[in-house]
Design a protein around this nucleic acid. Structure first.
Length: 287
DNA sequence: CATATGTCCTGAGAGC
DNA sequence: TGCTCTCAGGACATAT
């Protein structure tokens, strides 16, 4: 679930450890591990030991921990991963512990209940190949020209295209629905049928929704998994306009009822009245 | 037992 | 026909 706002909240939460030094890296207690952990923990530990954390950044839905030797720890939480300074929800699913010294926190943790998340230690020259080349511009800074140019010939539905991290990095299922609601655009609209002003509205709505969500520290859904770095809940779930609100009356027009459809095997929520399609021929069929 | 948030992979089918 | 684009489905692991 962590999408851009949740990952950005994690990033800000661990920012205070910039300037700390890593004493060691361990894969604690549990034998469970992330789907991908590279290199092996022994090599990982050797390479990070004694290194200073010089910055904590973010690329799309990944947290980037930059070390003094220019190596970067790239953490991808995927469905249930958390980057924490506080003690985790349970020790059972703790996947990585960095012991720290010389700063406000004595640890930086990666906790992941489902274990689909990944942790990689990459040298500077590997970053371009393994991270940058797979991601489009960050959703917070993407321009409407970039969106339009990448998608104007695409036959995909706009909702599906917004989830493509190679197009724009950071948007997931929840925020795609919120963004298109704010844009007033039917999620089934084909990209090649969108007009210039519509691309601009999508870009503006993307910025607005993501910034709002960051201010509220992301969305903690009913499963309660997502937490900020101090193990607190996000607050944006109370401000969702359409996500997970099937049959509720639309907050804008008050008349339409929020509808749920399935696109690319994921739920899409929208208001059929506020998000009118212009013509059938510009729409991608959804089941 | 179906469902949920993200990504990667494969294979089939659509369309230029 | 041939190439490219797109989507369906499975895999990953777990709790409601």
């Amino acid at each position: 679930m962590p999408e851009l706002p949740e990952v950005e909240t994690m990033r800000c939460g661990v920012l205070p450890v910039v300037g700390s030094r890593i004493t060691n890296a361990q894969r604690p207690e549990c034998r469970l591990r992330p789907i991908l952990f590279e290199p092996d923990i022994r090599t990982f530990d050797q390479r990070v030991r004694g290194q200073e954390i010089v910055d904590v950044g973010r690329r799309g839905k990944r947290v980037m921990i930059h070390l003094g030797n220019e190596d970067v720890i790239v953490i991808e939480p995927r469905m249930t991963g958390l980057v924490l300074l506080a003690d985790p929800p349970g020790l059972e699913h703790l996947r990585l512990r960095l012991t720290l010294t010389g700063g406000p926190s004595k640890q930086l943790l990666f906790w992941d209940r489902r274990g689909l998340g990944t942790v990689r230690l990459l040298a500077a020259d590997e970053l371009k190949l393994k991270v940058d080349s797979k991601l489009g511009p960050d959703a917070l800074s993407v321009t409407h020209h970039e969106l339009k140019n990448k998608l104007k010939t695409s036959r995909r539905a706009i909702k599906v295209a917004l989830l493509d991290q190679a197009v724009v990095a950071g948007i997931g299922n929840l925020y795609a629905a919120e963004i298109l609601f704010l844009s007033g655009i039917d999620p089934r609209t084909r990209c090649d049928g969108l007009t210039g002003p519509q691309w601009k509205r999508i870009q503006q709505a993307t910025h607005t929704v993501l910034q709002e969500a960051i201010q509220h520290e992301g969305s903690t859904l009913s499963d309660g998994t997502y937490r900020n770095a101090l193990n607190g809940e996000g607050g944006y779930q109370n401000y969702h306009r359409v996500y997970d609100r099937v049959d509720a009356s639309c907050i804008r027009c008050k008349k339409g009822r929020v509808r749920r459809i399935v696109q690319a095997q994921r739920s899409t929520f929208f208001c059929p009245k506020c998000q009118q399609r212009r013509g059938l021929h510009h729409t991608v069929r959804a089941n």
